[in-house]
Amino acid sequence: MAQKITTLVLLIEILFLVSCLSHFTTTKADNDGDVIHVAGKVMCQDCSLNYDKWINGSEPIKGAVVSITCMDERRRVRYYGSDKTDERGQFDLIVNNVLYGGKDLKPQLCNVRLVSSPDQSCNIPTNFGNGQTGVKLVRPFMVFKDLVKYVVGPFYYTTPMCETPKFENNY
């Protein structure tokens, strides 16, 4: 019985420490660093391939544009920026944490989404990874000294033949 109580107390202490560290990380991310980084990847997924190749065979898209829009509490746009992907389909948006007028940027009010694909054979945005509707920055992936980094996605485009048809009058 004493061993069960000791184990329960130890579990409660661990949960408390994890909660404190999570709060510390979020608080530190909200207050430290001059910039925040938002990284991710943009891929092409071809629905005409067999299941295994469709799931595992996505290819990176070079030159795809991804944007970040940050709002304030009154739902006004405070920052907008974009970045193009490299040959590996990766992007790294860098946003100043202090906005014009000395106001602090609140990352949780930022939204990252797909904008465009230069690949004409793979330019239909999908909502896999919420790339079409956008991803809110909730928790940083990494906080280390002055580096605050968020990771989103991967985001996907697909081929025009995979696009879902739009019907008029729901028919």
Rank of each mutant, 00 (worst) to 15 (best):
44 C>A: 02
118 P>H: 09
19 S>V: 01
54 W>L: 01
54 W>I: 00
32 D>E: 13
4 K>Q: 15
112 V>T: 07
93 L>F: 11
38 V>P: 10
102 G>Y: 13
52 D>R: 08
30 D>Y: 03
36 I>F: 03
149 K>C: 13
129 G>C: 01
25 T>H: 04
95 V>H: 15
22 S>K: 07
26 T>C: 07
141 F>R: 09
42 V>A: 09
133 T>Y: 00
66 V>I: 13
114 L>S: 04
131 G>R: 01
48 S>D: 03
122 C>G: 10
160 P>C: 14
29 A>K: 08
125 P>L: 14
2 A>D: 01
170 N>P: 02
41 K>F: 00
129 G>K: 00
21 L>P: 00
150 Y>W: 07
86 D>W: 08
116 S>V: 05
24 F>G: 06
29 A>T: 06
120 Q>S: 15
161 M>N: 15
37 H>A: 12
156 Y>P: 00
5 I>T: 06
142 M>A: 11
6 T>L: 12
44 C>R: 01
167 F>Q: 09
43 M>W: 05
51 Y>R: 00
104 D>G: 10
170 N>W: 14
99 L>G: 14
6 T>S: 11
31 N>V: 06
32 D>A: 13
15 L>V: 10
87 E>V: 02
154 P>G: 08
28 K>S: 08
156 Y>W: 05
171 Y>Q: 11
80 Y>N: 13
3 Q>M: 03
70 C>P: 11
80 Y>I: 10
144 F>Y: 14
17 L>C: 00
112 V>Y: 00
54 W>Y: 09
81 G>F: 02
120 Q>T: 15
52 D>K: 09
112 V>F: 00
151 V>C: 11
132 Q>F: 11
81 G>D: 12
46 D>Q: 05
155 F>K: 08
11 L>E: 10
14 I>S: 04
113 R>M: 11
41 K>E: 12
76 R>P: 00
43 M>Y: 04
161 M>D: 14
122 C>A: 07
115 V>G: 07
158 T>L: 03
77 V>I: 15
134 G>I: 08
82 S>C: 09
92 D>S: 12
161 M>S: 15
115 V>K: 14
52 D>M: 01
126 T>P: 00
151 V>M: 07
154 P>V: 03
48 S>K: 05
95 V>C: 15
136 K>T: 08
137 L>R: 14
37 H>L: 13
2 A>G: 07
127 N>V: 05
75 R>T: 05
10 L>D: 13
55 I>V: 06
76 R>F: 08
68 I>T: 13
26 T>Q: 15
61 I>N: 08
7 T>A: 15
136 K>E: 09
110 C>E: 11
31 N>R: 15
64 A>P: 03
66 V>D: 03
26 T>K: 14
148 V>H: 12
49 L>R: 02
62 K>H: 08
111 N>W: 10
